[in-house]
Amino acid sequence: MTTVASTRPASTPSRPAALDHRTPSSERRAGLLLSAPFVLVYLVFVIGPLLIGVVVSLFNTTTVKSGLGEWVGLSNYTKVCADPLFWQAMWHSVLFTLFTTPPLVVLALVFAVLAARIRRGRVFYRIAFFAPYVVPSSVVALIFLWIYTPQVGLAPKFFHAVGLPVPDFIGSTSGGWTAVVLMTLWWTFGFNFVLYTAAIQDVPSDVYEAAAIDGAGPWQQIRFITVPLLGRTTSLVLILQILASLKVFDQIYLLLGGGPDQSTRPVIEYIYDTGFTSYRGGYGAAATLIYFAVIVAISAVWYGLRRWRATRAAA
């Protein structure tokens, strides 16, 4: 608790906002010097690749060879757009997002709300749900591959025991999606759970007290107080989850290798395959930027919506 209290400033004292002619030069210099290392590294190693990506996408660059290669104009972009495999890969990333986002958001909300009603054992829930999140993806894949092993694995045994048909977890497309979605659910669920738990703790308790005096039962309290007050958090969790899911690579690459027959290959693996396995740097860069533009557009729309809502609420 202490950490939260102290990282969230209670008061916001007035800050130097605008630069004016009275600002001493020592302050200006110090500001530049102190921010310079961050800005330099940021420009070179984060913005740099973006610009290099733009340049490289206009050339037939070989990923593993120095030099840009020949100028090809925008033809890399037209070729990427004309490749059905690229759009299939994009669709797989979207599909993964559609499969994972609803359970990851809804379950996290439900569990966080339920956990908030329980007095004891909160640390235990926190540990159980969040511990998987700190495990490296390849270790998660190792464990789940073993769980999914036909005949001897835990998952086929479980499906068999409860009388469900046992899917071919690694060998078929539908089984593969099941496997990846269950694994992702286990792995990343704790993150959203923690975000919701923190948000619920911010709901002042006198709201509940008032409601309880008015005779609201637990279900009504959840339905009419907790969930509506979590709207902003849900919006944040949702966008974080969508952005994270669209970036999926680790789980599908490790567990299925994008297979069977590339039927689950996400777009980052498409970029990996064309750009690194086939060395088609320019082409891969074009695919990267198209994908990048989609992500930025989604972020921008979300950000815009949030601003618009905020201003509407303020007005």
């Binding site: 973006l50 990267t288 972020s299």
Partner: peptide
């Protein structure tokens, strides 16, 4: 920005 997506450049 999804900087992870920029691995190729």
């Amino acid at each position: 920005l999804p900087s992870e997506a920029l691995v190729l450049p």
